[in-house]
């Protein structure tokens, strides 16, 4: 249990460290949040800076931010003047979560069968063929696949909407685009662990006893082979969430990833920080949950699974 407690404690420390890091990084940025296309007379700029406490010394700004954060307040948005960061995150997060969870389901549905079948016969032509196809998932990044998919399925075939987030249909193309690289990744993890599991003595014993293949795979191989996949789900979920930054940008979906890019380009300090904190906490929670589940499933696996993970972008 103390191992689990340590993980939780470390997650909290990691969280604080990330906040500090991002806060400092943003204050180093050149250009202020009020540099618009039109001029700002010095008096007015001074008014604006005072209104957002930007005229205070850095430590004071930092403490102000932390104490607000402790109350769950991410502050006002510098650019989206009519919204607080909380309001923006509350509106954008469901979109990002719907996108991410949809993509996770798709990635699992496609990646698990591919990985299992390939891992049953590693090195064979079937394995290489399947992995070659699965490899395409990572080779077609969203910046290429997105525009092509929209052109084909929305404009030419008129099956799906081109952009927006009004209905389930609007999420189909983004979800598939986001899921593809993770199909590859999940297939790779399960392929490796299946192959490894097959070499374990008791599986061979099971074969020796003449049990039917289907039963062996379902009740003996899969449960063990899935442990690394479960461990991988932490980083995978985190990766899907950050991957949604790219996809939301390409499809102009109103999720927090899109807010992030716009805010970073516009130097909207508070919104950038807010979104980064939300992402970081999601990431940390995903990783923590995966760790805890693995600890609970198989304490011995702990040392191994961590080292196995190679994430796509």
């Amino acid at each position: 249990m103390s191992a689990a407690l340590t993980r939780v404690l470390l997650t909290v420390i990691a969280f604080l460290a990330i906040i500090t890091l991002v806060f400092l990084l943003l204050r180093l940025a050149p250009g202020g949040p009020f540099d618009g296309e039109r001029r700002l007379p010095p008096d007015i700029e001074a008014n604006l800076r005072a209104a957002y406490h930007l005229n205070e010394p850095l430590p004071q700004q930092y403490l102000r931010y932390l104490s607000a954060l402790a109350r769950g307040d991410l502050g006002p948005s510098f650019r989206q003047k009519d919204f607080t960061v909380n309001e923006l995150v509350a509106r954008g997060l469901p979109v990002s979560l719907a996108l991410g969870s949809g993509a996770l389901v798709v990635a699992l549905l496609l990646g698990l069968p591919l990985g299992l079948v390939a891992g049953m016969q590693p090195g064979t032509r079937l394995d290489r063929g399947l992995m070659g196809v699965a490899g395409l998932g990572i080779a077609l990044p969203a910046i290429i696949l997105g525009p092509v998919a929209v052109l084909v399925f929305a404009v030419k075939l008129d099956w799906l909407p081109a952009a927006g987030s009004d209905s389930a249909a609007h999420f189909v193309l983004p979800i598939v685009t986001l899921a593809l690289p993770w199909v590859t990744a999940i297939a790779r993890v399960l392929r490796t662990s299946t192959a490894e599991t097959l070499s374990l003595p008791h599986i061979r014993t099971a074969y020796g006893k003449g049990l039917p293949t289907r039963r062996i795979v379902l009740s003996h191989v899969l449960p063990l082979a899935l442990v690394p996949v479960i461990a991988f789900l932490g980083p995978a979920t985190a990766g899907l969430l950050t991957g949604s930054v790219v996809v939301e940008q390409v499809f102009e979906l109103p999720g927090i990833g899109r807010y992030f890019v716009q805010a970073a380009l516009n130097r909207d300090y508070t919104l950038v920080m807010g979104v980064t904190i939300v992402y970081a906490s999601l990431l940390l929670i995903c990783n923590l949950l995966a760790d805890l589940i693995v600890l609970w499933l198989d304490p011995r696996a702990r040392a191994r699974v961590k080292t196995r993970v190679t994430t796509p972008t």
């Binding site: 650019r79 009519d82 979109v95 719907a98 209905s167 716009q262």
Partner: peptide, 29 residues
């Protein structure tokens, strides 16, 4: 959101215009 999603395409009111604007407004003040 999921519920709306399940309901499929939301049909817009016939005489509501949908106009593209080249970006997100920062304020309506």
């Amino acid at each position: 959101l999921i519920l709306i999603a399940c309901a499929g395409f939301s049909s817009a009111i016939a005489d509501t215009l949908r106009l593209g604007n080249p970006g997100e407004p920062e304020t309506l003040d």
